[in-house]
């Protein structure tokens, strides 16, 4: 049987399939369907310093081959995570990664410092790309100086694996990726959702309470693949690819384009068995192509 394990910085993942932040809660919520220990890792719901109620309903619009969301980082804050969630997940045998958010650099630092104390959290995913919050969020991910400042500040207070989640809502994603690498990021994950909009023609109103929201699902896959490929050619740090992955073939495409691992998000809404199917599908792909290890495929797009 082929070896599915991959390494990102100093973390060995048993396979390259992780949950995407904001789509699987803190892991426990999907346990009826998914054996968490079969996953490479769980990237948990975005966490902020203080509790957030998120945006008003309606927060979701179905779109061709995907959906828009405008949840706006609803979460109970980092204290609640440390006190009430962490004890329940720390003994589960997979890598739990906290998605860290903030409106200011100080908030990013404060959340990171709390997470740094937790022994069983080997990495954070620094979210500088949420399109659904008024302050901070994506603002840090769409300008090089802002990204530089936040990554630099967080790097100073965090000594474990630092993954930075990038926004696709930008002219050149490679520039931001290079800045993150230069400031000491150990990995970049991409893409977050694409800024979009839905209109109700009958009511002559926007569908979402926030007017705009983040597009995800198969609709964004070609853009995500292109960006993973571009970033792969621009930086040396490992890439975690995501955007519309619905099966093993999609995952392999991302790995060929340069991703060391992938995240699946929106796909679980349609198929809660998607993780199990994707992991076994990757295994059979490797067997069929007589490959011994998934690492042999990373970035091996034949030109």
């Amino acid at each position: 049987m082929a070896d599915l394990s991959i390494k990102i910085h100093d973390i060995l993942f048993k396979n390259p399939v992780l949950t995407a932040s904001g789509t699987c809660g803190f892991g426990k919520e999907i346990q009826d369907f998914v054996n968490l220990e079969s996953l490479g890792g769980v990237v948990m719901k975005g966490t902020t310093l203080n509790p957030r109620e998120g945006n008003s309903y309606p927060r979701m619009a179905e779109t061709p081959s995907g959906m828009l969301n405008a949840v706006g980082l609803q979460n109970k804050g980092v204290d609640n995570f440390v006190r009430n969630i962490y004890p329940g997940i720390k003994d589960i045998d997979t890598h739990f990664i906290v998605n860290v958010n903030g409106s200011t650099i100080e908030e990013y630092i404060a959340v990171t410092e709390r997470i740094n104390e937790l022994e069983k959290i080997p990495a954070i995913e620094l979210n500088i790309s949420c399109p659904n919050v008024k302050e901070g969020g994506m603002a840090f991910g769409v300008s090089c100086p802002a990204a530089e400042a936040v990554v630099k500040a967080v790097r100073k207070v965090y000594n474990k694996t630092l993954i930075v989640k990038l926004s696709p809502n930008i002219t050149s994603i490679t520039e931001i990726a290079k800045v993150c690498e230069a400031q000491g990021a150990d990995s970049v994950s991409l893409i977050n959702t694409l800024l979009g909009m839905a209109v109700d023609a009958e009511k002559r109103k926007p569908v979402l309470s926030t007017v705009t929201g983040g597009l995800s699902g198969p609709a964004v896959k070609p853009i995500a693949l292109r960006m993973v490929w571009q970033v792969h050619n621009a930086v040396k740090i490992p890439i975690i690819g995501m955007g519309g992955i619905m099966n093993a073939t999609d995952a392999i495409e991302f790995i060929l384009a340069g991703a060391s691992a992938v995240q699946i998000g929106t796909g679980i809404f349609k198929d809660p068995d998607i993780f199990e199917k994707t992991i076994s599908g990757i295994e059979s792909y490797l067997d069929r192509h007589k490959l011994h290890s998934i690492s042999e495929l990373i970035g091996k797009l034949q030109m």
């Binding site: 904001g22 789509t23 699987c24 809660g25 919520e29 999907i30 009826d32 369907f33 998120g54 309606p58 927060r59 979701m60 179905e62 959906m67 969301n69 949840v71 609803q74 929106t266 679980i268 809404f269 809660p272």
Partner: peptide, 9 residues
């Protein structure tokens, strides 16, 4: 969207 409490939509 999901029906089981993860998307928060």
């Amino acid at each position: 969207a999901c029906g089981f409490g993860v998307c928060l939509c």
